[in-house]
Design a binder for these strands. Structure first.
Length: 902
RNA sequence: GGGCGGUUAGCUCAGUUGGUUAGAGCGUCUGCCUUACAAGCAGAAGGUCACAGGUUCGAGCCCUGUACCGCCCACCA
């Protein structure tokens, strides 16, 4: 579609790894640098400005070493000195090159008072180095300045990479000779020293600024003139495979016409450009981010996108499927010929190449493009392969050979290589490498492009290339598009946007509809984890120290909607003797997995031969109704949290349901009843554990799968529809909430029992009564529901509160002497034999004070007429009820305080 | 320079349209090897919700401002 082109541009060059980087692969770091003030002498007579004799201009720079490539000095046309100085020339020190003073609006006028830091540091004169600075490149284009590249790709000073006037300025210049081969930072020091000695260094001022660094090597980026492949991201595509006409008519509010092009509203992004294809699904709501604030990042980036350089000078990666040809015209177009001749020859070459490819039935499968640079005085023709037929496979094999040093090849390998070369020549009628020019086409294959694709280009294809694209495989049809992408915010632009872009372009649809952006883990001090700091955690070490499920559970429980989470890092000794970075955070997951395992062991010990869950009806026991109510509430809430990407809530809900409700309460109740010979609790234990495992499986896959296997064998589980459960948990159905099982009355009643039990336990602690010592008790409960509740659950109370003889009285009784008492929800419990009066008084007093505090608060609220007038009725009613119940409770407590026992 | 997130118990973090006396895990204190589990059980202590204003009957939550920590984006004179 003509979207890929080749261009000589200033790129972000990493001199350490010697590759180009995209804009978003550049990391900006604050650097303590300097401003150097360099004097460039005027050529010819001095000028008078405001009565001052001026024989030089002073430029300010943060990078003195680039002065070797200066081709102009610029000043603002509004500068009062411009009249006298514009169109004069200066002589560049060291180099001796005479360069013009030009006028350009870009130059910031000096102003020591300004808030703009640049204005404070500016002298009004800007050295212009088009080959080594992006701004200067622009100025150079505006003024037709030469681009003199003074550096080699490794960042050393070199005359070999485009130092256009080297023959004039360098040949007999000992200073420049001395600079050759010096690293850019050595050259900086050398040049500073030169200016100092020549009394041309006016000043050096400290300056803090942002400098781009390579995300790979972390060395400062060098803006470098280089040939690279680009993708045009805002170029309209004639037929982009997406039904855009309908989309435009359905979303008139999202588009506008600009210069005859349909662009997205408020942008210069054509709807049928790559950027437009990625942006439209966000604007129309098909693509959603969670948390949604990240959508803004995505949008802003795409709206301001510049063409994407996709070639990289690396070893690993998809090799760019491009061959370079040049055409040798009969008239021997060679060095010295005019551009026009070269272009003509290339057009001729392209025509003949097309003809030739058509004759070989390859015409449909290749695209040729003419680029604007020369090879040996010839305009090259780039051929990009699009197919995977036998001929191309042959090429590919050849190219794989190319990538190895010949010395690495075995004799057989070398022979095979040569054979491939011959076959290639035979098929194309042209030489593959060092081969003669084809007489038939006049074309010479110069080389296969040695570059590879940007890793993010390859990664952009991931959602469909992994499924066999472009072949319409069953996998592709089944799994593309997908649903959710879960990733980190740092690659929203690098990866997410490119996947959407390529998915739209190549498959006509977005690869996923939801993007979940999780937090980034930092160390305990809020720093990014990094190899150089040594504060990172290796997941494989955590698997050794805590286990895979423990790690996963902990990470899920940390996955909130926030931007960062901290994880304290601690060294830890492993049993095998290694010391690794770990974190106490993972204890959460480990302890929980352990708890689950132990609870399952208990269940398994009791489930042999238990009746199937579906046979246990009706379920009358309070504890059963309670745990089933809690279970179904949990199913409902976990499902909802999962659907809304609130992962920490999923982990939290399951943690507390499993540990608090199931283990601490229901299993304790079940123990008592199972020992008493009841079989109901066994089936319910199996059922609850079953659903816990199903819900927990995504968060702790290994341990749940292992337990499930045993549980299934023991308890013969059923699916929600009553059918036999899948033999593997990973394939088992997600539980459904049984709304009918949610039972607020049961939760209320069981809550009352829990309250009572907890209070008794509290009394025991306060009175330092040995936990094993059973105490007798008298419970007073009003006839009706309260008495029923106690009556039906006496055994349970005895077991969980470690009580001995328990008497239930439906009538008030006189407080027994030497009894502690607890009260609540219309019940009173006298704990006989708790004799510590001081402790009892302290406990009850504390309870009373707490109640008094609460009552005061509510009373104040209800005394406020504005509250009564303006607050919703139900809120007022709730407050009234609260007050009543707290008063009743207070009355009980005060009565107990006044009783002889205390 | 532009944008965003955070500041809640000693530590790490929840807190869903503003509505009981703000929660969890770890740590701390007390007592327990109770035949699933001491990596556990039971009980307890611990908070001026960063600061200053404002809106409201009512603010951890909404608004304004300040401070500090951190992240992202932006062409390095």
């Amino acid at each position: 579609d003509g979207l890929i082109y080749r261009g000589k541009r200033l790129v972000n060059w990493d001199p350490a790894t010697q590759t180009v980087l995209a804009d978003d692969e550049v990391e900006h770091e604050t650097v303590q640098g300097s401003f150097w003030y360099l004097q460039y002498p005027l050529v010819g007579d001095p000028v008078e400005i405001n009565g001052q004799r001026v024989d030089h201009v002073t430029v300010a720079t943060t990078r003195p070493e680039t002065m070797l490539g200066d081709t102009a000095v610029a000043m603002n046309p509004a500068d009062p000195r411009a009249k006298a100085l514009a169109d004069r020339k200066v002589r560049l020190p060291i180099v001796g090159r005479e360069i013009p003073i030009i006028a350009d609006d870009h130059v910031v006028l000096p102003n020591p008072e300004s808030e703009d830091e640049k204005a404070r540091f500016s002298t009004g004169f800007l050295k212009v180095t088009p080959a080594h600075d992006p701004n200067d490149y622009e100025i150079g284009q505006r003024h037709g300045l030469p681009r003199i590249n003074v550096m080699a790709p490794d960042g050393t000073i070199s005359e070999k990479y485009g130092w256009l006037d080297w023959d004039q300025v360098g040949k007999d210049n000992p200073d420049l000779q001395a600079l050759l081969g010096k690293d850019r930072f050595e050259a900086r020091a050398w040049i500073e020293e030169f200016f100092r000695q020549e009394k041309l260094l006016e000043d050096v001022r400290p300056y803090t600024h942002e400098v781009g660094h390579s995300y790979r090597s972390h060395v400062p980026i060098e803006p470098y003139l280089s040939d690279q492949w680009y993708i045009a991201v805002k170029r309209p595509i004639a037929d982009c495979g997406v039904p855009l006409a309908e989309w435009v008519s359905e979303h008139p509010d999202l588009v506008e016409e600009k210069d005859g092009v349909t662009v997205l509203q408020g942008t210069d992004v054509p709807v049928n450009s790559l950027a437009g294809l990625a942006l439209a699904p966000l604007l129309d709501g098909r693509l959603e981010f969670t948390p949604d604030r990240y959508a803004k990042n995505y949008q802003a980036w795409l709206e301001n996108l510049r063409d994407w350089p996709i070639s990289r000078q690396l070893w690993w990666g998809h090799r760019i499927p491009v061959w370079t040809f040049v055409h040798f015209h009969a008239r021997n177009v060679s060095a010295g010929s005019t551009d026009r001749d070269a272009w003509h020859a290339a057009s001729e070459g392209e025509r003949r190449l097309r003809e030739y490819m058509e004759a070989c039935n390859l015409g449909e499968q290749f695209v040729a493009r003419i680029a604007d640079d020369l090879i040996d005085g010839h305009v090259p023709i780039f051929v990009c392969s699009r197919s995977q037929d036998a001929d191309l496979a042959l090429d590919l094999l050849t190219q794989i050979m190319d990538q190895r040093a010949t010395s690495d090849l075995s004799r057989e390998g070398l022979q095979a290589y040569n054979e491939q070369q011959h076959q290639l020549e035979g098929r194309f009628g042209i030489g593959a490498k060092n081969a003669a020019v084809s007489l038939r086409t006049g074309l010479r294959l110069v080389r296969r492009d040695p570059d590879v694709l940007d890793t993010w280009f390859s990664s952009a294809l991931w959602p469909f290339s992994t499924l066999g694209w472009p072949t319409p495989t069953p996998e592709l049809q089944r799994y593309y598009p997908g649903d959710v992408l879960c990733t980190a915010r740092e690659i929203i632009t690098l990866w997410v946007s490119r996947m959407v872009m390529m998915g739209q372009y190549c498959c006509g649809d977005i690869p996923f509809s939801d993007v979940f952006i999780h937090a980034m883990i930092q160390d305990g001090e809020g720093r990014k984890m990094s190899k150089s700091l040594g504060n990172g955690i290796d997941p494989l070490d955590i698997i050794d120290s805590h286990g895979a499920d423990a790690m996963r559970f902990t990470l899920v429980s940390m996955t909130t909607q926030t931007q960062d989470v901290r994880m304290p890092v601690e060294a830890m000794n492993l049993p095998d003797g290694r010391t690794v970075n770990s974190s106490p955070k993972f204890d959460i997951g480990r302890n929980f997995c352990n708890k689950l395992w132990n609870a399952s062991r208990f269940a398994m010990m009791n489930l042999e031969g238990c009746p199937p869950w579906s046979d246990i009806r009706p379920r009358e026991a309070l504890a059963d109704r309670w745990i089933l109510s809690r279970l179904n509430t949990t199913v409902r809430d976990v499902t909802r949290a999962l659907e809304e990407f609130r992962f920490n809530e999923v982990a939290d809900l399951l943690y507390h349901f499993t540990w608090d409700d199931f283990c601490d309460w229901y299993l304790e109740v079940a123990k008592v009843r199972i020992r008493a010979g009841e079989s109901g609790p066994r089936a319910i234990v199996a059922h609850v554990l079953d659903l816990i495992l199903r819900m927990l499986h995504p968060v702790a896959p290994f341990i749940t799968e292992a337990i499930w296997e045993k549980l299934n064998a023991t308890a013969r589980l059923r699916g929600p529809g009553g059918q036999a459960a899948s033999p593997l948990l990973v394939r088992a159905e997600w539980p459904r909430c049984d709304a009918a099982a949610i039972d607020p009355a049961a939760e209320e009643s069981f809550g009352a029992l829990q309250d009572l039990i907890r209070q008794v336990r509290n009394v025991r602690t306060q009175h330092t009564i040995a936990p094993s010592k059973a105490l007798d008790a008298i419970i007073v409960a009003a006839p009706g529901p309260a008495a029923e509740l106690i009556d039906r659950n006496l055994e349970l109370l005895r077991a969980l509160a470690t009580l001995g003889e328990v008497t239930l009285s439906r009538e008030p009784v006189n407080a027994p002497p030497d009894a502690a008492a607890v009260a609540g929800r219309g019940m009173k419990l006298y704990l006989l034999g708790a004799v510590d009066r001081a402790a009892e008084t302290a406990r009850l007093t504390k309870q009373r004070d707490k109640l008094l505090g609460g009552i005061q608060g509510v009373e104040a609220k209800l005394a406020n007429e504005k509250f009564l007038a303006k607050a919703p009725e139900n809120v007022v009613a709730t407050e009234r009820e609260r007050l009543a119940s707290m008063r009743a409770e207070l009355a009980d407590v005060e009565k107990l305080l006044g009783e002889p026992g205390t």
